[in-house]
Design a protein around this nucleic acid. Structure first.
Lengths: 190, 190
DNA sequence: CTGAACTTTCAATATATACTGAAATAACTA
DNA sequence: TAGTTATTTCAGTATATATTGAAAGTTCAG
C-alpha cells in the first residue's frame, strides 16, 4: 500500500495531486447520478491506484471511518466494479478496480439499465393494462382522454425499448465495433 | 384543469389510478438519477395530462406546497422539459409538457451530458497536464506509476469521448435513423 | 395609482441520507 | 483451544436535501 509515499520519484506531489483531483471530481459526478459521493470516491481511488488497496488505505486517504469504508467497498463489490484480492503474508483483504475501462462502464450501464430502465418499462405495461385492452378499430368508443394517455405511454415504451436495445448492442460490440458504427453513422449523416 | 373530475366516462377511476401509478414510479426513478422526487413527479403529471396544468393543480394532485410547486415548475422550464402557456381569460400561468417523447429524452440526454460528462472530461485533461507532458519515445524515464496512471486516464478519456459521440449521433439521427442503425448493428453482430 | 390575483423567495423546519465508532462477529494462528 | 486480528453491523449522530408557509415581489385591470 501507500505507493505514493516513495519519495525517490522526480515528481511525487503532482502525481498525488492529480489523483486527488480526479477522485474529487469522480465523487461529485457520483452525486449527480444518484451514487453516494464516498462510494464514487472510493471507486476513483481504486481506479487510479496501481496496487491493491485495503480498508485502512481507504480510511487514511479519504478520511472516512472504518464503517463507511467497509460498507462502500462491499457495495462496489456487489456492483461488480471492484474485486477482493489477498496478499501473501497479510491477513487483510485488499481491493482492486477492474482496470479495463470498457468493461467497467459496461458494468455500470447494464446495472443501471436493469435497476432503473426495466422497472419503468414494467410499470408502463401495468399502466396500459389498467386502462383496458387496446380498442382495435374504433369500435369501443374509448374516451379521448384514455386514447391520448395510452398513446403517450406507448410512445415512451417504444422509445425506451429501442434506445435500450441500441445501448445493449453497443456494449456487446465493444470498442472496435463501436468505432465501426461511428464510421457508418457519420456516413449516414452526410 | 382537473379533467379527471368529469364523471361521465366509462372508466374514470382506472385512468386516474393508472396515471397515479406512472407518476409515482417516474418519481422514484428520478431519485436514482439524482433528480428530486417531486420534480420528477411534477414532470410525470404534466406528461400524462392532456390539458395544461397550473400551480394549483400541481399542489392539489401531488399534495405539495405552493413554494415547492413553483420552484420545481421553474426548474423544469429551465431544463427545457416543460413550457409556460397562457389561457384566455385566466391570469394564472399554465404548464405543458413537451409531448414528443423523442425530443424530451433528447433534451434530458443533452443536458446531462453537458452537465455531467463534460466536466469529467475536462478534469481528466487537467489531471493529465498535472503529471507533465507525454514523454514521446521513452527518453524521460517517467516513473512507472505515472505511466500507468496516465494510461488509465487516457483510456477513460477516449472511451467517454467516443461513447458521447455516438449518443450525440443517435440523438441527431432521430427515431427513423435509430431504426436503421439498429438494423445495421444486428447485421454486424450476426 | 390602487388593490386584487398570482408568483417567487427564503428562513425555519422536517425529512432523508450518510457517517461514526464501538460492540459483535468472523477468520485465522499458534 | 484460546488469543489475536480483521471485518461487519448498527444505534446514535451529523449532514445534506427538500418542504413549508408567509412575506415580498410582480403584474395587471380599472
Amino acid at each position: 500500500m501507500s505507493e505514493t509515499v516513495k519519495t525517490d520519484a522526480t515528481q511525487p506531489v503532482p502525481l498525488d495531486a492529480s489523483r486527488q483531483l480526479f477522485i474529487r471530481r469522480w465523487g461529485e459526478m457520483g452525486g449527480y447520478w444518484g451514487i453516494n459521493r464516498t462510494m464514487a470516491e472510493i471507486h476513483a481511488l481504486l481506479f487510479v491506484s496501481n496496487e491493491p488497496v485495503c480498508t485502512d488505505d481507504v480510511m487514511e486517504r479519504l478520511l472516512v471511518s472504518r464503517g463507511t469504508a467497509s460498507t462502500n467497498l462491499r457495495a462496489l463489490v456487489d456492483w461488480g466494479l471492484i474485486e477482493r484480492v489477498h496478499l501473501r503474508g497479510d491477513r487483510r483483504e485488499y481491493f482492486l478496480c477492474r482496470t479495463n475501462v470498457w468493461e467497467m462502464l459496461e458494468t455500470i450501464i447494464q446495472q443501471r439499465r436493469r435497476r432503473e430502465v426495466e422497472p419503468i418499462v414494467e410499470t408502463i405495461d401495468k399502466c396500459l393494462e389498467m386502462v383496458g385492452p387496446v380498442t382495435k378499430g374504433k369500435t369501443a368508443a374509448e374516451p379521448e382522454d384514455v386514447t391520448k394517455f395510452r398513446c403517450r405511454l406507448e410512445e415512451m415504451q417504444s422509445f425506451l425499448q429501442s434506445f435500450g436495445a441500441i445501448v445493449d448492442m453497443m456494449v456487446t460490440l465493444g470498442p472496435e465495433g463501436l468505432e465501426r458504427v461511428s464510421g457508418m453513422m457519420t456516413k449516414m449523416m452526410a
